[in-house]
Design a protein around this nucleic acid. Structure first.
Length: 278
DNA sequence: CATATGTCCTGAGAGC
DNA sequence: TGCTCTCAGGACATAT
């Protein structure tokens, strides 16, 4: 998402509007009038990312923080449908005329924050970014936790940026049972989780994310991602494991969310295992 | 304090 | 066909 909207750096925002006022407000702050007044005339100086949030940095140091959650899209092109458009930034001085936030389910959030608010409301609540973690950090944070590793990896205060699909893929590459309790994991296993996190996320970014069967996720130009073609376990229930060829991928529910794994490759009593892409 | 559960939404697909 | 039910790349408030 961040790469997709990078072309708007250098553009100036001439207007901010919420096209669908009758929709139940998603978490949106401040109200659109104040929002519009504060961003009008501001140049977009950078686009950043922190965990799963896209950060649009303005010349006056305010930051627009977009949290897409399940179905939110940050778009330069026209959205997938006429409804559910949550924010339109009209632009000038660059190639693109607009930057949109479109969100079918409306679980996403858009906030305009000052540098101080950013520290408290974003930085203060997130762990280090998933692409920057060390295995020491993971171990230190979780070695006394009684939670299952899959559930803990989704905690953004521990590591920022791992979602449900990726947690499953990461644990598959690590050869670790998603139900394993954190306080039972060994040093080498924490190391493998860190390596697998790096491998999975870099690969997914390269393929521009996963457009699942419902077709929701789109890149900034409303195109599909390609990583769904490389999933090793996610959404592959009953299919044979790509690594051992024998195990059938299982689906279980943890913390009310689906987990997919290979019961042969991911056993609680750790077998010899190295992280490698298949 | 840490961990578990309910809740906010829309829409696609399965099953009857 | 038309209905109900379940489930979906998430995070947070509230309960235990």
């Amino acid at each position: 998402m961040r790469r997709g909207v990078l072309p708007v750096v250098g553009s100036q925002i001439t207007r901010a509007q919420r096209p669908e006022c009758r929709l139940r407000p998603i978490l949106f702050e401040p109200d659109i009038c104040t929002f519009d007044r504060r961003v009008r005339g501001q140049e977009i100086v950078d686009i950043g990312r922190r965990g799963k949030r896209v950060m649009i940095h303005l010349a006056n140091e305010d930051v627009i923080v977009i949290e897409p959650r399940m179905t939110g899209l940050v778009l330069l092109a026209d959205p997938p449908g006429p409804e559910h458009l949550r924010l339109r930034l009209t632009l000038q001085g660059g190639i693109n005329e607009q930057l949109l936030f479109w969100d079918r389910r409306g679980l996403g959030t858009v906030r305009l924050l000052s540098p101080d608010e950013l520290k408290v409301k974003v930085e203060g609540r997130l762990g280090p970014d998933a692409l920057n973690i060390t295995h020491e950090h993971l171990k230190h944070k979780l070695k006394t936790s009684r939670r299952e590793i899959k559930v803990a990896l989704l905690d953004q205060a521990v590591v920022a940026g791992i979602g449900n699909l990726y947690a499953a893929e990461i644990l598959f590459l690590s050869g670790i049972d998603p139900r394993a309790r954190c306080d039972r994991l060994t040093g080498p296993q924490w190391k493998r989780i860190q390596q697998a996190t790096q491998a999975v996320l870099m690969e997914a970014i390269e393929h521009e994310g996963s457009t699942l069967s419902d077709g929701t996720y789109r890149n900034a130009l409303n195109g599909e991602g390609g990583y769904q073609n490389y999933h090793r376990v996610y959404d592959r229930v009953d299919q044979s494991c790509l690594r051992c060829k024998k195990g059938r991928i299982r689906r279980i529910v943890q913390a009310q969310r689906s987990t997919f794994f290979c019961p042969k490759c991911q056993q609680r009593r750790g077998l010899h295992h190295t992280v490698r892409t298949i």
